[in-house]
Amino acid sequence: MNIFRLSGDVCHLIAIIILFLKIWRSKSCAGISGKSQVLFALVFTTRYLDLFTSYISAYNTVMKVVYLLLAYSTVGLIFFRFRNSYDSESDSFRVEFLLVPVAGLSFLENYAFTPLEILWTFSIYLESVAILPQLFMITKTGEAESITAHYLLFLGLYRALYLANWLWRFHTEGFYDQIAVVSGVVQTIFYCDFFYLYFTRVLRGSGKMSLP
């Protein structure tokens, strides 16, 4: 464990908590892509099956359980409890265009052709594109509440910090997980445009982040 990875995990947890609390307290999921949240729940489900097969550390186990609980709770809030505020019109990204290529690639490019390993690979590839429905929804509505922007900021920072973690681990222990690194770079690149908007608009205190 190193500071980059720990702060990455903390950012990830903060992002997930920000989103959950935003929906819970405002009793509305307006502006939130339910599709992205379903994809994230799928990412955690396919990645954390090793909860039942291998024990790494208390931290690892606790964080996986917390991520799974919050992810499914958020999906539950969006599609059940506050479903009347779910803007399915704007959340129109065709997720099959993500799922099919990601599933295909995870069968072609993986470390081992075993069920757990292919599911892990699927989750890595899927995570790199899971935010696209949310980013697409924001470009479609043309704006995002600043709380949603903060959520995206922490979510983008988390994987960027993981890139630093992989640099550090490569430098200190020769660790190199090519699938995770390449996907992490792609994932972070998708946030670059948002980061620019965030630091030029949201931080100007304009309340909402309105896209050009």
Binding site: D50, I56, N60, Y67, Y162, N165, E173, F175, A180
Partner: peptide
Amino acid sequence: EYNIYNHDEL
């Protein structure tokens, strides 16, 4: 040598 299969990262 790091065993790539036991993914120890979240």
